[in-house]
Design a protein around this nucleic acid. Structure first.
Length: 641
RNA sequence: GCUGCUGUAGCUCAGCCGGUAGAGCACUUCCUUGGUAAGGAAGAGGUCUCGGGUUCAAGUCCCGACAGCAGCUCCA
């Protein structure tokens, strides 16, 4: 160390300040703090900017050491994982071209062109090569290069895609590259100091992906991988994935006999009796709340003359997703939305401001021709219904109406155990109708309503409906995955297109505003999301079978029938299992069907007029009097628990 | 829609280098009448998704259709 070295002041997260010679690296700072930290360090944060450990400090700065357990540390680890995978691919498939390799939730991917499609057999080979490179502990070096020089290097390596990126997307005159052994990649970084830091990773799958997500461009192979700080974390993650698979709603739908799909109607679910019970209970809940929140339910047609869709703007903006039919020499379209139909009910009579807000709800079946590759289980279907409603109101009622929707929605989500939703304000999309002022007014009104209710939200530019901006609600499920459910859309266009009016207090003809809103959203999608959320363990009020009555032997079938009738008499859903299985088999079957309560009856129960209770969560809960049991389940059912 | 993978009994799946189809569960019948996660036996059940092609011979190989699954910018 030169005696003339200038000292710089480094502020640490705990507020303390230390002095170091200028040029000290982040690793150097970590080393000076402690052995454990020095070892766990994976990157640094200098004045809030993520940098490599090898980053040399050139002046006073606040420095944070990022360890691999921290979210940023994991991100660095995963980004390096992507490089490691790319290096393995370059070693195994000479001439392979690299696309992009970003970090994603729980892992990373890298798009590569290896001149053919990769099969599942390729994955273990790639992973084995990655292990080899990791064990070599190759130092990772950052290089700042001029763009021209970087392009020359990439040309030498045949990296056509990287060159395209530099030419088209990177305006900066200099770029950074990361080098590890014979491998070099264009990358912002930061990265781990050497490949030996990668100890827990796995190559997960390979699929096709278009270069830059553009269908007209070449198809690359997207390799997915994951990396974690420790092997244990990796195992936990893989276990979590297995658990998620077990509660996949398509699988549960089959196992619990809730619904099915048939090739004759792609994207259109068939709800079996048990599934239909749940489906109708969801509708029942909403109907009850409609009463409370002042909605009126209507029933409207399925198909309309195309002229209606021309007026509404759907023909121009939504035609690709609509079903058409030529019948009676007249062209009709199957409705993809309820809104235009509702305008007819509104316009059927002369409306006064005294009637507003008019809230019309409709569980009508909708059909949308989603792209064949988009449809999946219940989450993306072509035939569905929504807990849909349209609120016709005066402009000055917008805020209070939206407040009302927000209140109702909170009540609903509480019932289902979805908490802290994320809210988005979606603005004007490219394909849309209505004037610019109209949109600005509508977007401002939604923002005002959100602010008035103290709701934090993000803006999703261009994600609105074609007729107006919207507020979307995303909830997190039991596995911490996000799902979009509620939507609240503001619409000044349809009232104009259908020339809707009301007479104001000042006896003037005014234009109402329409608020489109759904809380569960599509009932089909909600069904799927909730089924996964509860893993098929429906609460008592939603369970297709609430109680399974299980006689120990035929001799007690009579009493078992009495028990079943006592429950059914209270409107409860009961299944009497009078098969000749043994009690333990009957229990296993009911357990697998995730029935909340099992009432086992034998000689003792018959004598004492009790049932031996067993809950889905397992274990014999002992005998309770039949009357008490009926009361308990009835109460729980009514309370929607 | 595009790319890849898959399609065998009601369900989950096996079926080798092409030689006429198998298991477990479920179902039917019989035996068993049992106390908290599956008692035993017998039987029935298949146009191997559909349509073409290659072959002496196709569930198996090739082409096409349909359906399902995964993916299709979370921007170096």
């Amino acid at each position: 160390m030169s005696t003339a070295a200038t000292l710089i002041r480094v502020r640490l997260p705990d507020g303390s300040t230390r002095e170091y010679p200028e040029g000290t690296t982040v690793q150097g700072v970590a080393d000076s703090i402690g052995k454990r930290l020095a070892k766990a360090a994976i990157a640094g944060k200098v004045d809030g900017r993520l940098v490599d450990l090898s980053h040399a400090l050139r002046g006073d700065a606040s420095v944070e050491i990022v360890t691999e357990e921290r979210p940023e540390g994991l991100e660095v680890l995963r980004h390096s994982g992507a490089h490691l995978m790319a290096q393995a691919v370059r070693r195994l498939y000479p001439g392979a071209k690299l696309g992009v390799g970003p970090v994603i939730e729980d892992g990373f991917y890298y798009d590569v062109d290896v001149g053919r499609t990769l099969s599942p057999d390729d994955l273990p080979k790639i992973e084995a090569e990655m292990k080899k490179i990791a064990e070599e502990a190759i130092p990772v070096r950052r290089r700042e290069l001029s763009k021209d020089e970087a392009i020359r290097i990439m040309q030498g390596r045949g990296e056509a895609l990287k060159i395209e990126m530099m030419n088209q997307d990177i305006p900066d005159p200099t770029v950074s590259c990361y080098e590890q052994g014979e491998f070099i990649d264009l990358c912002r970084g930061p990265h781990v100091p050497d490949t030996g830091r990668l100890t827990a990773f796995k190559v997960l799958k390979a699929t096709g992906a278009y270069w830059r997500g553009d269908q007209s461009k070449q198809m690359l192979q997207r390799l997915y991988g994951t990396a974690w700080a420790t092997r244990k974390d990796l195992e936990t993650y893989l276990f979590r994935m297995e658990e998620a698979k077990k509660r996949d709603h398509r699988r549960l739908g089959q196992e619990l006999d809730l619904f099915s799909f048939q090739p004759v109607a792609p994207g259109a679910p068939f709800f079996h009796p048990k599934g239909a019970i749940v489906y109708n209970l969801l509708i029942g809940l909403m109907r009850e709340l409609y009463q409370k929140y002042g909605y009126q339910e209507v029933v409207t047609p399925q198909i309309f003359d195309v002229s209606l869709w021309h007026t509404s703007g759907h023909y121009a903006n939504y035609k690709d997703k609509m079903y058409f039919t030529l019948s009676d020499e007249r062209e009709f379209a199957v409705k993809p939305m309820n809104c235009p139909g509702h305008t007819f009910i509104y316009a059927h009579s002369k409306r006064s401001y005294r009637e507003l807000p008019l809230r019309l709800a409709d569980f009508g079946r909708l059909h949308r021709l989603e792209q064949s590759g988009e449809i999946a289980g219940l989450t993306r279907v072509r035939s569905f219904s929504q807990d849909d409603a349209h609120i016709f109101c005066a402009p000055e009622q917008i805020e209070s109406e939206i407040t009302g929707v927000v209140k109702m929605l909170t009540e609903v989500y509480t019932i289902f155990g979805f908490s802290s939703p994320r809210v988005c304000l979606c603005t004007r999309p490219e394909k849309s109708i209505g004037s610019e002022e109209m949109w600005q007014k509508a977007e401002a009104a939604l923002a005002a309503a959100l602010q008035a209710n103290g709701i934090a939200y993000a803006v999703a530019k261009g994600d609105g409906a074609f007729y107006g901006p919207k507020i979307d609600y995303q909830v997190r499920d039991a596995l911490n995955r996000e799902h979009q459910l509620a939507t609240i859309q503001l619409d000044f266009s349809l009232p104009e297109r259908f020339d809707l009016r009301y007479t104001s207090a000042a006896d003037r003809e005014e234009r109402p505003v329409m608020i489109h809103r759904a809380i569960l959203g599509s009932l089909e999608r909600f069904f799927g999301v909730y089924l996964e959320h509860c893993a098929g363990n429906f609460p008592v009020w939603l369970a297709p079978v609430q109680v399974a009555v299980l006689p120990i032997a035929d001799a007690f079938n009579g009493y078992a029938r009495e028990v079943a009738e006592a429950l059914a008499g209270k409107g409860l859903r009961v299944k009497l299992d009078d098969s000749n299985h043994r009690a333990s088999a009957k229990i296993a079957i009911a357990q697998q069907q995730k029935v909340p309560y099992m009432a086992v009856v034998g000689e003792r129960e018959q004598r004492d007029r009790t049932v031996s209770l067993r809950e889905r969560s397992g274990g014999d809960k002992g005998a309770i009097p039949l009357d008490d049991f009926v009361r308990r389940v009835t109460e729980e059912n009514g309370a929607r628990r």
